[in-house]
Design a protein around this nucleic acid. Structure first.
Lengths: 245, 245
DNA sequence: TTTATCCTTATTGAATGCAATTTACCGATT
DNA sequence: AATCGGTAAATTGCATTCAATAAGGATAAA
């Protein structure tokens, strides 16, 4: 493989897929805030592709629930809806609870060990930047969900976690909240190590429920309004993909 | 402006959406069997549209899990995979169990009444054609899931039920199996009416688990092989959408 | 000033065309 | 006979283009 077309980078991942990943990242990071409108042409320009793959990417995000769209109208990043957010967390809590229950009996000793190590890492990181701790927290949940070894369930959990993602960034992890979080995780972890599936499931469900309540309360208290989330008028900037080579 | 384009029928539902619904129906009915390949051009021809909306429809089905596709390769109707089928049913059973538990405390009296009536209707229909009873059974599950009043959970259940759908047609409902099914439903129904959420959830989960086991056993026993499901060579016919007016 | 209506522009939905890749076919070699 | 390679045909991914619809703004009326 020598020259080929200098534009063609690598076709294994489709253009549409690359755009999808880019937009998803923009949404998760808040560069595309809930309520922002998506302009196909502008996105196409930003990613240096035609509108076709952009449309595919957008419709994928619609199916994932991250973007909302009516026929003939502009796509918008799914707006903040406290009602729905609570429902998402309720569903996520139930499913993660199930996953934890199943994982207790399905994780290999090595996987349980990995979970312990991750927990300890998080403990050590808890004094560092909050977003570092948050990442460990996310991985903790992910490891447990993966432990249930049921693709369909893992999928469902990922979809829900993804939909909740854009709103997590509103949540500031105060040191005290990190402590609570860590205690919750420890309770789940101990139940898993003890082999008490029921208890693990219950603890996990309660933990995620609490997380949701906290987030919703934070949003309500700080009056995170539509305006904070979606600039009312101005067209939103779109991240340009960085060209490599 | 009287005539307009005679081809343009009505643009509220998108072309892509119409094609998606058509393909979905073909898959559920078995006209497009698991393992069959989807040819964009041919489908486009059959539906009298260009390939663009067809591609959108296909990628929607991919996201729903009904169709499988790798970049640059042909899309195929997701093949029969007993392993995965068991996982799907396990996940569906857990989620429907949760839904039943929540529904017990959230359904209005009117909704519970509707459930009772549906159950009685099914009872009466149980001696008729099996597929009529099957439809009532589907609705019974659907009413309960809807009763949990959590959009996210309802969504998750629908996705899973949809993925399992293409394989249900292998299952012949023998009179004796209908009896068992009806008994299961009655157990769930009684728990709901009694207000015993825990019991309703457990009964529901067990019921759906059993359904899955039955289906998988049927498939194994009757040696439903890949060949039965996917004609190895021949291109598959595609249903033509019926033109109205 | 506010509100409603028309008109212009911006934007989406879909058709068509082309390059790149995969699949199918066929003869050569072991 | 089966496997491997190479070539032709089929098929996908994407760009481009055009018609149809929605959004935005100016003008007129209240």
């Amino acid at each position: 493989m020598t020259g080929k077309t200098d534009a063609a980078i690598k076709s294994s991942p489709t253009q549409a897929e690359l755009v999808r990943l880019g937009l998803e990242s923009d949404i998760f990071s808040g560069r595309l805030a809930p309520g922002a409108t998506l302009n196909e042409s502008r996105i196409a320009e930003a990613y240096a592709v035609s509108r076709t793959p952009v449309r595919e990417a957008i419709s994928a995000l619609v199916r994932a629930g991250l973007v909302t769209k009516q026929a003939q109208k502009r796509a918008v990043v799914t707006p903040l809806d406290v009602e729905l957010l609570l429902e998402l967390f309720e569903a996520l809590a139930e499913i993660e609870g199930i996953a934890a229950r199943l994982a207790t009996e399905r994780m290999t000793p090595a996987q349980k060990q990995a979970l312990v190590e991750l927990h300890d890492l998080a403990q050590a990181a808890s004094s560092d930047e909050a977003h570092i701790y948050a990442e460990f927290g996310r991985q903790f949940h992910q490891l447990i969900v993966a432990g249930c070894k049921n693709k369909a369930l893992i999928d469902a959990a990922e979809v829900l976690a993804g939909r909740v993602n854009p709103f997590r960034r509103f949540q500031v992890l105060a040191p005290e909240r990190i402590r609570t979080n860590q205690n919750d995780h420890e309770r789940v972890l101990n139940a898993i190590l003890r082999g008490d599936a029921q208890q693990a499931g219950d603890a996990m469900r309660k933990h995620t429920t609490d997380q949701g309540d906290m987030l919703v309360r934070y949003i309500a208290l700080h009056k995170v309004s539509y305006a904070d989330v979606a600039p009312p008028r101005r067209e939103n900037p779109v991240q340009t993909i960085s060209e490599s080579g």
